[in-house]
Design a protein around this nucleic acid. Structure first.
Length: 488
RNA sequence: GUCCCCAUCGUCUAGAGGCCUAGGACACUCCCCUUUCACGGGAGUAACCGGGGUUCGAAUCCCCGUGGGGACGCCA
């Protein structure tokens, strides 16, 4: 196959935010397409009108965009096989269902939900795979049409051939579905809406999808879809079923496991690159041994289906956090600042009085402490006078024997610096000032260092004073000392 | 229950018959760096689910157990 013929798709149903499992599915599809120079298509599977909403679709699209997955065809961008929203392709499905009905490959079913449920439960209890018993198969076509005319609302069932199906799965290898695995299944609901297993086949075929890469939960659906391809005489696309993402209790990851939506991670201050990097490693590994941190370009370059892991994987939020921290440390500062701004604006910090360049410098000093962008306000507090105060962890330092002498000497040294050099205070300036304080106060070691730290930052811990002080300047440093000394 | 899939440290994984005394990462512990915190560096604890084969040789291949997961819908 010529590589540019490759066409893959991601087909979410818009019933909520994009969750991490879905995100990994998009990622793998997108990487596969980009690696091979193929096309990546987005299709909205909104045939379940009960649950699908336009709002959810908007959110999904937004999440996909945030993650950086550009699609070649899909809603909003269009394409040669439009429309890409199943709810806008209803006439198509009706036509193809009609073909099946006409060819005697499908029939009307008048069974009610209740009897179906009862039979299903009975079958399970009896130790059998529940499947349709063929009741309505006995109804003649003429009778069925008559009842339909009379106002009854039947579903349309596909006549499932009774034979074994073999699937050559791209990730699982040869999978055999026994002949009795599925019974006649519904392709059209009683309100005329088509059902998933039916639309996917029509759409994947019409949209010339070459590779269907999706989660393992769809593996057993595949046999139904193979039957449909066969009925239409259409060639099968290649299928690849990727293992599931599990929660800590090893069941399929869901909301009860905590944050599972991409949107939430975005809001909690995760970088998209970190999320992507974490997700790509959940079931796939780089061909370069021991390579964990990688750029998106490297993922595109190295991605291949044969390195997918068949075993399901547990989602570990702790490792995600670590990874996010790695990205924060290495991120371009201007960009990092831009992304951090919303978190600062939401916080109590009075950032209005500072320009972005100053904030960027401050952020640069504390970025090593961050695991998420949401941590930033907490670490940035030391730079803002309005929030400056002696923090609980620093109270004890005030009663150190050297405290008063050091604070006084520091004040004097800074005042001298102010008259000589003004408000500008460099790291080198501070080093000299520190020497002066040492001589003047007679303090040394922690006895010297801790009082200075406390009087300047209000904390017993924090980044190197040499890095903090230039951001403060002489006057503000002096004001802080004043506040501590006078208690005002 | 039936069918399908899966099985290496607590977790993510490397490993495609000898390179394995099983490697890396997260987490955890300790040490170093640091006049603080964090970062960083180093070290350590920790795994081939069990049983049978096949083979000179098995984490790797086969079978059977066991365990886990998924699907059995007029959801996708």
């Amino acid at each position: 196959m010529v590589s540019s013929d490759v066409r893959v798709r991601f087909a979410p149903s818009p019933t909520g935010y994009l969750h991490v499992g879905g995100a990994r599915t998009v990622l793998y599809n997108w990487l596969f397409a980009r690696h091979l120079g193929g096309k990546f298509i987005l299709r909205i599977e909104d045939t379940d009108q009960e649950r699908s909403t336009r709002e959810a679709e908007r959110m999904q699209l937004e999440d996909i965009r945030w993650m950086g997955f550009d699609y070649d065809e899909g809603p909003e961008v269009g394409g040669a096989y439009a429309p890409y929203r199943q709810s806008e392709r209803l006439d198509l499905y009706a036509k193809y269902a009609q073909d099946l009905l006409a060819g005697d490959r499908a029939y009307y079913c008048f069974c009610s939900d209740e009897v179906l449920d009862t039979k299903r439960e009975a079958a399970m209890k009896a130790g059998e795979t529940p499947q349709y018993d063929g009741t309505c198969l006995k109804i003649s076509k003429a009778d069925a049409l008559k009842r339909k005319q009379a106002g009854e609302k039947p579903t349309v069932r596909f006549k499932a051939p009774v034979r074994e199906y073999r699937l050559h799965d791209l990730v699982r290898g040869e999978v055999v579905f026994p002949s009795n695995m599925v019974g006649d299944f519904v392709i059209l609901r009683n309100d005329g809406m088509p059902v998933y297993n039916f639309c996917v086949v029509i759409d994947d075929h019409l949209m010339k999808i070459t590779h269907v890469l999706r989660a393992e939960e769809h593996l057993s659906n595949t046999v139904r879809q193979m039957m449909l391809y066969e009925a239409y005489g259409w060639p099968l696309p290649q299928f690849g079923h990727m293992s599931l993402i599990l929660g800590a209790d090893r069941s399929k990851l869901s909301k009860r496991h905590g944050a599972t939506s991409v949107h939430q991670y975005n809001e909690e201050g995760y970088l998209r690159e970190a999320l992507l990097n974490f997700l790509v490693l959940l079931g796939w590994s780089s061909p370069t041994e021991n390579k964990e941190i990688m750029t998106i370009d490297e993922m595109v370059r190295d991605f291949s289906l044969d390195r997918l892991n068949k075993a399901p994987s547990v989602f570990d939020p702790v490792k995600l956090k670590w990874m996010n921290g790695q990205y924060i440390k290495a991120y371009p500062l201007a960009e990092l600042t831009r992304l951090t701004m919303p978190f600062l604006k939401k916080s109590e910090l009075p950032i209005a009085g500072h320009d972005e360049a100053w904030i960027a410098r401050a952020l640069d000093v504390i970025r090593g402490n961050l695991e998420t962008l949401a941590d930033a306000p907490r670490f940035l507090r030391i730079f803002f006078d309005e929030t400056f105060d002696i923090e609980p962890d620093a109270v004890a330092v005030k009663s150190e024997p050297t405290f008063t002498a050091v604070a006084g000497a520091l004040k004097a040294a800074l005042e001298k610096h102010l008259t000589g050099a003004g408000d500008n205070l460099t790291s080198d300036d501070f080093a000299k000032i520190q020497d002066q304080v040492k001589v003047a106060s007679g303090a040394k070691g922690k006895g010297l260092f801790m009082p200075m730290r406390v009087v300047l930052t209000g904390h017993a811990h924090g980044p190197d004073l040499k890095l903090i002080v230039p951001l403060l300047g002489t006057k503000r440093s002096l004001a802080r000392i004043e506040k501590v000394l006078t208690g005002k």
